[in-house]
């Protein structure tokens, strides 16, 4: 798969652990899980934030998605813990 540029957002403790709210990521990852693997390999803070993906949720272009979802055509990826609204 060819490279694409993604706007990657982090919220709540994921944002705190990684240390930034948003970044541009150029990647050839085919799925969310591939992207997570790539980010984990970057630095310890990413490895810590993505250590347990069962504790995380992901949204693709502002819609909740699964970790095996493809990234083709996606512009924005957001990672966050389970939501606690209400």
């Amino acid at each position: 798969m060819s490279e694409q540029s993604l706007n990657v957002l982090y919220f709540a403790w994921v944002r705190e652990r990684i240390g930034l709210p948003v970044e541009d990521v150029t990647t050839s990852a085919a799925t969310v899980a591939d992207l997570v693997e790539e980010l984990r390999g970057r630095e310890e803070r990413y490895a810590a934030a993505f250590a347990d993906t069962s504790a995380l949720r992901v949204a693709l272009d502002q819609e909740l998605a699964e970790f095996d979802a493809p990234l083709a055509g996606v512009r924005e990826v957001a990672f966050f813990p389970p939501m606690t609204g209400g």
């Binding site: 919220f11 709540a12 403790w13 949204a59 909740l64 957001a78 966050f80 813990p81 389970p82 939501m83 606690t84 609204g85 209400g86």
Partner: peptide
Amino acid sequence: YLKSRAPFWKKEITRDGAAWVAS
């Protein structure tokens, strides 16, 4: 649905520090 499908995250600030509310 607002509780677990709307993208909000609560953090409690107490005298002893701050902690994210777990779902």
